[in-house]
Design a binder for these strands. Structure first.
Lengths: 235, 235
DNA sequence: TTCCCTCTTTGCGCTAGCACAAAGAACAAA
DNA sequence: TTTGTTCTTTGTGCTAGCGCAAAGAGGGAA
């Protein structure tokens, strides 16, 4: 719990999950949490495991994936610092529906499910904050569902890149670097297509000067044009 | 508020949203609600409207749809009695992201958003129940998202029919009747395909004796076989 | 009964994007 | 430097399913 020693409230206050709670309350909440660090490419839990811990990401990136019955994998989302995950499973008392893997060095706060439930009863604001977070997530999935149902691959890839850029983009002179290792396969799993199609699309965009891509890496050179592809209604 | 007069707790108790609340609490909660009835094919609110009311469906069916930028419509889900909707918008203080239409005669409980927030602070169990509901919904959307990304049309249609059957199915001698008016277009909007493809698929299934379909109506004759199409991993 | 409107079916051409194969390129380990 | 591994590109064929058109078919109104 090293990171919490000293000034825990400092750490928790800016996280959406803890909005509108007093420093005093945060002190108690923090004192019930467990803090741990993980290396990159580590499994935090597997799909199907019994859900026991409610997690808030403090630092790093976590990838949530799901395996289909016939073995295909899809990437549901990347978790950014300040976000909570495993909320669903802990509350519904069902096994984790997803697998969580660290993408880089990660720092994590967790609570036992029952502890978190008790906290929520004591501090309803905590439950309300969670509701806001889940509400936003539902929105996001609704949007992606619609996207998936009504839009073509090229546009979905453009959207995925823009989304990633806004979450993990690092501004360079030449453009926006997506600052995690990202294979063509990863992008395919995010957009519901194949690595071949992603590769072809990126190649085309590279020719057109929209992006610059290397192995496991994409830099967006012309965000505006990508937005046109992602949003253009005239097609 | 006629329906609430007399014995409101009777009405509310079996609804998931009100689990684990005492009759006493329910009395207060019910007293702050507004009850109204609506005819079929009535708009409850439109996508983009300012969200003001938190809704719990008591009787009937409500359809939630979303319009894409270029005018395509998709059906997000059908709401069944006992379910809450418009949860997302009220909590995030964003405009309704969906349009809600009554499918048949509907009976509805609503609360002003601020009233509901205060209730949740007073009765944290209410917020926790909402969390459970939203958690389930996220699960559902994740599943459908994965489905959409990895599975072919025929399977998605089979799943949609089975889902509808479990929500609104009426058991007959010949099979399970899906007990709402349901056009090919509706099914297409639920599964992310075109009305042509739905029509062709149903025709084929009709030939194979899996379903029997008329205008705006589908009866599942051989549920097992449909499950095979929906779940079979060997393809 | 007729008319109109909405829903459904079916034929046909076409293309987005999948699947497989095979070769190149970057990186890591030895 | 070599070798193996993983990631990427690109060619080729193929097909699921889209999009359009046009013809039923049921159902309500008058």
């Amino acid at each position: 719990m090293a990171i919490l020693a000293g000034n825990p409230t400092h750490l928790l206050a800016p996280i959406g999950f803890f909005h509108q709670l007093s420093f005093q309350d945060l002190d108690e909440i923090a004192s019930t949490a467990t803090h741990r660090e993980y290396d990159k490419n580590t499994y935090l839990f597997h799909q199907g495991d019994q859900a026991r811990r409610f997690c808030v990401l403090v630092k790093g990136k976590v990838k949530l994936t799901q395996l289909t019955e016939d073995g295909q994998q899809i990437i549901l989302r990347y978790v950014s610092p300040g976000e909570a995950f495993a909320v669903v499973a802990v509350l519904s008392k069902i096994p984790y529906p997803v697998t969580a893997t660290t993408v880089n060095q990660v720092s994590l706060l967790t609570w036992e499910d029952q502890v978190m439930l008790d906290l929520m009863k004591k501090y309803p604001q905590l439950a309300i904050n969670s509701l806001r977070i889940l509400a936003g997530r539902i929105q996001e999935f609704q949007d992606r569902f619609r996207e998936q149902a009504t839009e073509r691959v090229e546009r979905r890839i453009a959207r995925a890149l823009l989304r990633l850029a806004s979450q993990t983009g690092r501004k360079l002179d030449r453009g926006i670097l997506i600052d995690i290792a990202l294979t063509r396969q990863d992008l395919a799993e995010m957009t519901g297509t194949t690595l071949y199609t992603v590769s072809r699309t990126l190649s085309q965009w590279e020719k057109d000067g929209l992006v610059s891509s290397q192995r496991e890496q994409v830099t967006i050179l012309a965000p505006h044009q990508l937005v046109v592809i992602a949003e253009d209604m005239s097609k």
